[in-house]
């Protein structure tokens, strides 16, 4: 479970640097705790998607291996934090709605391809099955993370409405 834990620590550290401009104990410890909801959501989604294909004894190791696919996202978050904390806030909105979206699209494909090969090799999924697994995992994880982060009404309509409004605002 080293990789999921690392994701939580990276998220807590990013939160601290974005809020205070440094890695401060008071924010890192606290933020790492509640941002564990991201790796937890990803791990739970994996258990749902993989179902009985994951043997009980090997689940922990499989989750750790699966989080290799989170590497591009983790490196991307580190890079984004590095840039945002070294430029004037006047540039933040431009970066967040421009370069960030392009970067996200690349990372999304990169990460999906790693997960695709995880499902192909670790769970012996067919090509079509692995694609379905990746898409289902993304749907479950992203919906959960987006709902917790941004949506006050946890209904399909509420989630879609928030998504539409946020695109409009951008």
């Amino acid at each position: 479970m080293r990789r999921p834990l690392l994701v939580a620590v990276v998220l807590g550290s990013m939160v601290s640097m974005l809020a205070s401009g440094a890695l401060t104990a008071r924010i890192v410890l606290s933020a790492t705790t509640y941002w564990t909801f991201v790796p937890i959501a990803e791990a739970l989604a994996l258990l749902v998607v993989a179902g009985r294909r994951l043997e009980r004894g090997s689940r922990s190791a499989a989750i750790d291996t699966f989080f290799a696919g989170h590497g591009p996202w983790t490196l991307f978050m580190i890079a984004v934090t590095g840039v945002l904390t070294f430029v004037s806030p006047a540039l933040w909105w431009t970066l967040l709605t421009g370069a960030l979206i392009v970067g996200m699209a690349i990372v999304m494909l990169w990460s999906a391809s790693i997960d695709f090969w995880f499902f192909r090799t670790a769970l012996s999924a067919s090509r079509a099955g692995a694609i379905r697994d990746v898409l289902l995992h993304r749907l479950l994880t992203w919906t959960a993370v987006f709902a917790i982060f941004a949506v006050e009404t946890w209904t399909p309509g509420g989630i879609v409405r928030e998504l539409v409004e946020s695109f409009k605002e951008m």
């Binding site: 080293r2 990789r3 690392l6 620590v9 990276v10 550290s13 640097m17 205070s20 401009g21 440094a22 890695l23 401060t24 989080f67 290799a68 696919g69 989170h70 590497g71 591009p72 983790t74 490196l75 580190i78 934090t81 590095g82 904390t85 070294f86 430029v87 004037s88 790693i114």
Partner: peptide, 26 residues
């Protein structure tokens, strides 16, 4: 943005976290 200790903290943290991800083979 450019306050001494805070800058050192950010650079060291970014190096440490990137290295942790890369050495952990993602």
């Amino acid at each position: 943005i450019f306050a001494g200790l805070a800058v050192f903290s950010r650079i060291a943290a970014l190096i440490a976290l990137s290295a942790a991800v890369l050495f952990n083979r993602w």
